[in-house]
Amino acid sequence: MTDQAEWFRQLRVELIAAWAIAKKDMLIYYLKPNIIVSGMLFPLFMFLAFAVGRPGTPSVMIPGLIAITILFSASSIEPVSIPLERRMKTFDRLISAPVSLHAVVLGESLSGFLYSIGIAAVPFIAGIIIFNTPVINAAPLIIGVLLTSFCFATMGTLFASYPTESPGDIMSMLNVVRLPLIFISGIFIPLGQIPAIAQLLTYISPLTYGNDLIHAAYSGTTYFSPVVDIAMLLVFILIFQFAANRLYKKFNE
């Protein structure tokens, strides 16, 4: 077999393994109580706590709710599943399979990604049916939801690389990052109104670019160019994926 054929064969094997890992997570973890709380209820209550009573039309609030939902739901599966798998020693099964760590990281992230898309559909549908909030442009919504979901799912996998058997340890660290992101990413305060000193922070938040794209679907305008939003989300995905791969390798040594 030529090197190129072997490369494609292994790529196919890696994708099959990643999908098998994602399916396994769906069957086992989607209905675990701590995932329902952190992935579904937590973003809803966070949003209600900060949005109720503030001025804003549904067309402003719904994209924000979708963005927050994605942030919390996409990054909720792996910080629970991976420490539990370490505790049950099933994680050894994944890291000793004849696939690369990239496939394991991808598979774990895929489960968070799909979960997040399912959960994000709730505020989206509620926006249309209950609040009569139409989508002006579907393309940025679809691209924004897909990329943001995958980005935060990969971030969850990255945090879950910390070698602990307790999901609480990872959730605590993750919330130190997730909670500030809500306030510096233009969800409650439009990006243009954020104080200059905090503007720099908005640029290093992936949620800024995801929220910008999702918001554009409802308002028709973006703060950054859509190309910049997409490019930045892709950059964050690559950084998280490679960092996760490296850390899993390091912590296993």
């Binding site: 094997v13 393994a17 396994k24 069957l27 086992i28 399979a97």
Partner: peptide
């Protein structure tokens, strides 16, 4: 015995098989 206790015996076995293509 690192099996997935939320899955059936068959699901566990098929999952292992998929990891090995």
């Amino acid at each position: 015995s690192n099996i997935y206790t939320d899955l059936s015996a068959w699901q566990n076995l098929m999952f292992s098989a998929q990891l090995y293509d």
